[in-house]
């Protein structure tokens, strides 16, 4: 990841010394495990099927600073036919992409910005599009049509800890996503002369053929689907409980700390990204990555996994509470009518 802040050696050693001290001291007075204030809103994009906006460490007085990420999901219909040219897969697809607003990284050239977008997209994509998280209700017509779930994230401001923010926003947006309910419709074409559902009588002198269930000469022309209720938002995305949260452990051996600011990120060479999911009784790791120039040992990794699980569980529980609160709020709004 491009180190976007440049620090002098003195600043780096100051930050590191502060974190290695006992008790660890940080520039803004937080403890090693403290997060900055996280604020989350869902359904911020009315045209999207699901959306969320997360900001970490935003100044409450003037709304400036902090890491801000916007996530939105959009469902598209895709054809699954093998020869049709689209990449549709039976069972639907999930695609994830991250874009970085140039305003968030003013000193990066467009090529470097592209690279950064690629890198962020790779990490999110490899974790979120894994088959183990695949939602089961993305099929419309088996073998013919399915949903393509596009998850787009935009980094609006980056003040450090962008991965935690991205995964929080992704999970919130996917939780908020509603899949429109569909109903499959079939059109049966009559033999020569007639056409369409109504079967108008043309200039036929022959009696209308009686449709027989055993008549295999009938060709089903089009199999299609319709939305039974235009105003219905739809059903929840299946498996919305499974989407993971991410906790970034910034490593200053033997210590580690969470939620780094930009300066702290530049001063610490190595960090560990852990994606956890607590949907079942046992916690599961959905992704793990080391980033930066540094070395670890396997016992150290084991320790970090345990600590990371604890932090991730706290994040998970707070996030779930907030999401439920948001959902109740929305239902109340709708039911006001």
């Amino acid at each position: 990841m491009a180190s976007t802040t440049s620090l002098s050696k003195a600043e780096k050693s100051y930050i590191q010394a502060g974190l290695l001290a006992n008790p660890p001291t940080r520039g803004d007075g937080r403890s090693a495990q403290d997060f900055r204030t996280i604020s989350l809103q869902t359904s911020v994009a009315p045209l999207a099927n699901g959306s969320a906006r997360v900001s970490i460490g935003r100044d409450p007085h003037d709304g400036s600073g902090g890491t801000e990420v916007l996530a939105a999901t959009k469902l598209e219909v895709e054809s699954v036919d093998l020869g049709s040219g689209s990449g549709g897969v039976n069972g639907g697809r999930v695609m994830c992409s991250v874009t970085c607003s140039p305003a968030a990284y003013p000193h990066l050239s467009s090529a470097a910005l592209d690279d950064l977008q690629y890198d962020l997209t790779t990490i999110l994509n490899s974790t979120l599009t894994h088959p183990s998280l695949h939602p089961k209700n993305l099929t419309i017509l088996p073998g013919k049509k399915s949903w393509l779930l596009n998850l787009d994230l935009v980094v609006l401001v980056d003040s450090g800890n962008v991965f935690d923010a991205l995964f929080l926003a992704a999970r919130a947006a996917l939780w908020d996503t509603k899949v429109p309910r569909t109903r499959s419709v079939e059109y049966k074409a009559r033999k020569a002369g007639g056409g369409g559902e109504g079967g108008e009588k043309g200039d036929m002198e022959v009696d209308e053929e009686v449709v027989s269930g055993f008549d295999t000469r009938q060709i089903r022309h089009a199999t299609d689907f319709e939305l039974p209720d235009y105003w219905d938002e739809g059903e929840e995305l299946d498996g919305r409980d499974r989407w993971p949260v991410c906790v970034t452990l910034n490593l200053v051996p033997p210590a580690h700390f969470l939620d780094a600011t930009l300066e702290e990120e530049a001063a610490i060479p190595l960090r560990l990204l852990l994606m956890f999911s607590f949907d079942s009784d046992e916690p599961h790791i959905q992704g793990m990555r080391t980033m930066g120039n540094g070395e670890l040992t396997v016992p150290q990794l084991g320790e970090l996994l345990k600590e990371g699980e604890k932090y991730a569980r706290q994040i998970w529980q707070s996030l779930n509470a907030k999401l439920k609160e948001e959902e109740l709020g929305r239902i109340k709004e709708r039911n006001k009518f």
């Binding site: 490899s126 974790t127 894994h130 088959p131 183990s132 998280l133 560990l272 999911s277 046992e282 916690p283 599961h284 790791i285 959905q286 992704g287 793990m288 990555r289 080391t290 070395e295 670890l296 040992t297 396997v298 990794l301 084991g302 996994l305 345990k306 699980e309």
Partner: peptide, 26 residues
């Protein structure tokens, strides 16, 4: 780096229990 018994990179995808991930690493 086996010579130094240190790990330079771990990249895990998919669904695993933490102890399973650890046994994969070992």
């Amino acid at each position: 780096m086996p010579a130094l018994t240190t790990v330079t990179s771990v990249w895990q995808t998919g669904r695993m229990a933490p102890n399973q991930a650890l046994s994969c690493m070992v």
